[in-house]
Amino acid sequence: MEFGKLFYEALNLLGSIHENTQSPEEKELLLAAAEALRFINTTGQQYDFEDYRQELRTDGPEMVIAAFSTREEAEVWLKNHPKPPHMAQVLIADEYHVVGYARDINLRRLLRTPSVEYHLEEMMHDGLPPAVATFNTREEAKAWFYNLPERPSQAVIQLGGEHYLAAYHRNIDHLAFHPFSLVERLKEWRKKKEEEEKEVKESKPQS
């Protein structure tokens, strides 16, 4: 459904539910949802919203709005950004980071987030998925991917003897490579967190 029709039908539905809702809290939530749709429409972000909805239907990892080769490049971009996109995700050397922005004090930060680790872990639920192609270098893998008749949102490949997820971010035309070994780092992080929580629990005085 194209955005114009979706916009008006969604607003009508929210308005109908709003009229029949007694809870002030629920009325406020419904109003916020309607205002979010109006914001998209009045700021001219209809096509961006359509692209986002299309991206949600793919099998690939979470959407990013930019990709940088180094952290220095990302820091310069964030420092000079007139309106930092708070909570949006970007890639730095193909690692996921979330943009943190406190408008009142102009605090700008890039925080590492395990978004792709969770995605890879889910893909490995039934074991390591088979690779569809094998390459020695990223350049070879990128040339193969960009020459496909239709670029998929993701493909499992073997690169230098290791399994990788090649993830294509269509909105910024960027191909990222994520090693499945990142899942081990996620397991180590969880283990460390459990140990820290256990130490805190044991250090508390018994009542």
Rank of each mutant, 00 (worst) to 15 (best):
A102V: 15
V64N: 00
F49K: 03
T134I: 06
K83M: 13
R109M: 12
A66P: 00
V132Y: 13
H97K: 06
P85N: 01
P152W: 13
Y118R: 06
M123Q: 09
Q22T: 07
I92N: 13
A131K: 03
N136M: 14
A36V: 09
N136D: 15
V64H: 03
K79Y: 11
A67L: 02
P129K: 09
Q45E: 14
V98M: 15
V132K: 15
V76E: 12
L110E: 01
A36C: 10
E72D: 15
A88Q: 12
E150L: 15
P24T: 05
R112T: 07
L56E: 08
T58G: 05
P152Y: 07
A102E: 07
E139K: 01
R57W: 03
N80E: 06
D126R: 14
Q46Y: 06
V76Q: 10
G127T: 15
T43R: 09
N106A: 01
E62P: 04
F135Y: 03
H125F: 13
Q46D: 10
G127S: 07
R57S: 12
T42D: 09
G100I: 05
F49N: 01
E140C: 00
D104C: 05
T134M: 10
L31I: 08
T70I: 01
E75C: 07
T42M: 05
H97F: 07
N147Q: 12
L78I: 12
L110H: 01
I105T: 10
E121Y: 14
E121W: 11
Q54R: 11
A36L: 13
E117N: 05
D59Y: 04
H125L: 14
F135P: 02
G60I: 06
R151Y: 02
L37A: 05
D126W: 10
E28A: 15
P82R: 01
E28P: 02
T42N: 10
N147R: 06
Y118M: 06
E122T: 08
I40C: 01
L37S: 00
Q45S: 09
Y52K: 03
H125C: 13
Q46L: 08
N147F: 02
R109N: 06
K79T: 15
E50L: 11
Q54G: 04
R103A: 12
H81C: 04
E62F: 11
D126T: 11
H81W: 14
L128K: 04
Q89T: 06
I40H: 02
E140P: 00
E19A: 10
E28L: 09
P130F: 05
V99A: 05
L37C: 03
D126H: 08
E25G: 05
N20R: 15
Y96A: 07
P85L: 01
A33S: 10
L128H: 04
P152C: 02
E140T: 00
V99R: 07
A36W: 09
N41S: 08
H86R: 03
